[in-house]
Write a protein that binds this DNA or RNA. Structure first.
Lengths: 252, 252
DNA sequence: CGCGATTTGTGCACGCCTTCACAAGCGCCT
DNA sequence: AGGCGCTTGTGAAGGCGTGCACAAATCGCG
C-alpha cells in the first residue's frame, strides 16, 4: 500500500473512518463514475483525466472534479486519476465491498425478470431470496432460487442478514410488503410499485415508476410538437378543449 | 366572475396557450399527482385540498400548490381543486390524451417483462411493436405482439407514428439501437441499459439503471452502519410513526 | 347581507447545486 | 536544475428549487 494519507482510506487503521457526508447529488453520480471506470479498466487504462472520465460518464468535467474532491484527493495534478485506486475508493464509499444481500418480493411479470437480472450480481449485489404470497408461485424455481412464502421473510432475512429489499408487487400490496420488510429489519427499499410508501424515518426508500418515466418523456414530446407546429405563431392543433367553456377564452 | 383569466398563458393575447414552460422538477412530479388524483377519483372524491393531495402524493403542500400554480389557476380558494378538472389538465399537459405509441427493443429478460407490464397500458401508452436482433426471438408472440427484427424498425415506426422507444438490450448494443431509433424518427428514448447514450440534441433520453438504484441504497446502508458504530453519532432513534418521508424518485 | 372559516396563490429568503475561472501542484524535457 | 505544459482542486458567482408565512378569494351560515 502507499503511504499516502487520506481521511477516509479503506485501509485506515485504528477505528472507524470519519464518514464523509457527501451531497446527495454527488452520491447519485458515483455509481455512474464507477461503471465508467470499470469500463476504462477493461480497456487497460491506468489513469484517466477528469475530462476523459467526465465524458465517459456523461457529465461536466468541473462537476466530476468537485464530486471526487469530496472523497478526498485521489488525483495527481498534471496526470489524472489512478483508475484502480479510484474504483476501490468509490466501491468502499458505496459499501459495495460487502457484496450485499438483497431480497425480492413479488415474483410476477417484473419480479421474475429482476430475479434473473444479471446486472445485479455483476455490480455488487446478491439476490438471496424471493418471496410471494401466491401459493402457485411459492416453490417455483427461478435462477437457482426457490420462491418462498412471505411469512418466511422475517426468519430468512435474519439468517441471511438482508438489509435491502426490492418490492415488485402490484400497487395494492406494496404497503403491506413494506411493513413486513421493515418488521424483518430491512432498512433500504427499492420500490417498483406505483404509489407512496410510508416507512419509519430510518428506512430509505427509492422509487422506480416505469410509467412515470414514459409520462415525462411524453410531456417533452408534447412540448416539442407544439413548438414545431408553428414556430413563432399560435399552435394550430394544440387547443385544450378540456377546459370549461367559460374559461376557454381569455376575456381581455 | 365567469370570465376568469386563463392562467396557462398570462399576458398572451389570442387565447391559445403557448406551451407553459414548467420547471423540470415540477414536470417530474406531475405524474405522481396524476396517479394520486386517479386514486382519489375512484374513491368518489370530487374535490381535494392541496393538503390532501400533497399527502397522497408524498410531497409538501406548499410545493404542490406552487407546482399547480404553474399550470394556471385550477383551484378554488376555500374549497380546493376539482379532481376531474385537474386530471384533465395534467393529462393534457403531459400529452397523455394522445395515447402514445411506444416500441420496445430487446426482448430479453427485462424486455420480456416490460412488454407485458400492465402499468404502461393503463397509464396512457400503447406498446405497439417489439424488436430484437436474435433470430430465435424474432417471430415469438408476447402479449399479443409479434417480435420483429430490428431491420423493420424504420418502416414500422413510420407506419405506427412511434415517437417513444424503450431500450432493454444488453449494454453493448444500446448505442447501436439508439442510433437506429433516432434514424427511425424516434425523439424520446427510455434506456434501461447501463451506460451513456449519445443522441442528437433534439432527442430526449431518460435512463433507468436498476443497479445504480441499489448502489445508492447501499451507500446509505454503509453510512447508517458507520453511524451506529460511532458512539457520538445519533443513534437510530426509534421513530415509530411512519412519516410520509420524501421518497427519492429516480430521475434527473 | 355581512362575517368568519377555510384554502389557494405567491413574494421572499434560504440553501443546494452547478459552472466558471484560475491558482497550485506535478511530471517531463531540455 | 529549471522551466514549461498539463491537470487537479477550489473560491466565488449565479441559478434553481424549496418552504415559510401571509394576503386574497371563496363559501356557508346566521
Amino acid at each position: 500500500m502507499s503511504q499516502q494519507r487520506h481521511g477516509s482510506t479503506p485501509g485506515e487503521a485504528g477505528g472507524v473512518p470519519a464518514f464523509p457526508d457527501l451531497p446527495e447529488a454527488t452520491i447519485a453520480r458515483l455509481p455512474e463514475y464507477l461503471r465508467a471506470l470499470h469500463h476504462l479498466a477493461e480497456t487497460g487504462a491506468e489513469t484517466v483525466s477528469s475530462e476523459g472520465l467526465a465524458a465517459a460518464a456523461g457529465v461536466n468535467s468541473a462537476k466530476l472534479r468537485k464530486d471526487l474532491s469530496h472523497l478526498g484527493s485521489y488525483g495527481t495534478r498534471g496526470v489524472g486519476y489512478d483508475v484502480s485506486l479510484l474504483v476501490a475508493q468509490i466501491e468502499y464509499i458505496l459499501g459495495l465491498d460487502e457484496n450485499r444481500a438483497v431480497c425480492l418480493v413479488g415474483v410476477g411479470n417484473l419480479g421474475h425478470a429482476l430475479a434473473g437480472y444479471a446486472g445485479f450480481a455483476s455490480r455488487g449485489f446478491r439476490v438471496v431470496a424471493l418471496f410471494d404470497t401466491d401459493p402457485r408461485k411459492v416453490g417455483e424455481q427461478i435462477n437457482g432460487l426457490t420462491v418462498r412464502h412471505i411469512d418466511d421473510l422475517e426468519r430468512i432475512a435474519a439468517e441471511e442478514s438482508i438489509a435491502i429489499g426490492v418490492i415488485a408487487t402490484p400497487p395494492g400490496t406494496a404497503q403491506t410488503v413494506a411493513d413486513a420488510l421493515v418488521a424483518a429489519g430491512v432498512t433500504s427499499i427499492l420500490n417498483f410499485a406505483p404509489g407512496v410508501l410510508s416507512v419509519p424515518s430510518n428506512v430509505d426508500v427509492r422509487k422506480v415508476d416505469l410509467a412515470i418515466e414514459l409520462q415525462i418523456l411524453s410531456f417533452h414530446e408534447h412540448r416539442k410538437a407544439s413548438l414545431t407546429a408553428l414556430p413563432g405563431g399560435r399552435s394550430a392543433a394544440a387547443s385544450p378543449d378540456k377546459l370549461p367553456d367559460n374559461q376557454k377564452a381569455v376575456g381581455s
